[in-house]
């Protein structure tokens, strides 16, 4: 009993230490963001005259409203389509799991560990040939493709766990395959779809390599890509850079705080399966 209690205390202390390490960089950025613009402040100090105006300036020069809109458009282009076609494919693959179609699944799995860097060069030339370089579509289409291995893998794993009889009963009932999929399978898959949507949202929002290579204009980029451009343009001014970085990571952090439970569940399951 005594040991358990001391254990709990040690555990608490360790977790608090880990949390401190996790939060310190954010605090350090905040303290720098409040220093006078253009100065080189010290690592962590509460500024005598906090310059909250840096955030206003960063908001303006980073064109935050445009960035938010741009990232939302990209997410809106990537996530619904990816989730829809991945759910369909996951369902389809689960139905031919034991049979001649198994190799198709392996084709998708092949892409699971693929580093994006391995295809970024040809993607550039492909996107250029399609005439969509420097547009949001240049991010949306490739991202849908690149997310397919994981998404399909994820949804197939879900459908494999759904008892076969559910579908077969409906079949007997004479429901068309499409109808059966929509009216029976998709509603059951809702939790899996929700988690997948969260993961894809995060991965799209935070995607960096593709916007750096495929889209020059920061206002057509994802948030992470825009932050890269912001660093390129304002990295010379530490307080402004820190203010901008904090602003840019705020939207996801807010969403995360609101949907904390769902995010954590998705991230945990996502890594277990991925």
């Amino acid at each position: 009993m005594i040991e358990t209690r001391s254990n709990a205390l040690v555990a608490r202390a360790m977790l608090i230490a880990l949390m401190a390490v996790t939060l310190l960089p954010f605090l350090s950025m905040l303290s720098a963001a409040l220093a006078p613009s253009g100065s080189y402040p010290a690592g962590l100090q509460w500024p005598s005259d906090p310059q909250w105006g840096n955030f206003v300036k960063a908001f303006e020069v980073a064109n935050m409203t445009t960035l938010l809109w741009s990232s939302s458009l990209i997410v809106g282009g990537v996530v619904p389509v990816s989730v829809l076609i991945a759910t369909m494919a996951g369902y389809g693959l689960s139905r031919i799991d034991k049979g001649r179609g198994k190799w198709l699944y392996l084709v998708f799995v092949l892409g699971l560990t693929l580093p994006f860097e391995a295809v970024i060069t040809p993607l550039y030339y492909e996107v250029k040939a399609l005439g969509i370089l420097n547009t949001r579509v240049a991010l949306i289409l490739p991202l849908i493709g690149l997310f397919m291995p994981f998404s399909v893998y994820w949804m197939r794993a879900h459908f494999l766990n759904v008892p076969q009889e559910i579908g077969e009963a409906a079949e007997v009932d004479g429901a068309s395959d499409w109808k059966q999929f929509w009216l029976i399978q998709v509603p059951i898959a809702r939790p899996a779809i929700m988690s997948l949507s969260i993961l894809l949202f995060l991965w799209t929002w935070n995607q960096f390599l593709l916007p750096v290579v495929l889209v020059q204009d920061p206002e057509q980029r994802t948030m992470a890509g825009a932050l890269g451009a912001f660093q390129g343009q304002w990295g010379t001014d530490v307080p402004l850079l820190c203010a901008g970085a904090l602003l840019i990571l705020t939207p996801t952090v807010i969403l995360f705080l609101i949907f904390q439970r769902q995010f954590v569940a998705a991230l945990l399951q996502g890594s277990v399966k991925g």
Binding site: K128, L133, N134, Q216, A229, G232, Q233, T236
Partner: peptide, 21 residues
């Protein structure tokens, strides 16, 4: 006007000039 630091400038310029815009 778009701005970038020198190192990025060196990396981006060829791609930018060869691009569609």
């Amino acid at each position: 006007i778009k701005e970038d630091q020198f190192a990025n400038l060196m990396e981006n310029t060829p791609r930018l000039l060869a691009g569609d815009a």
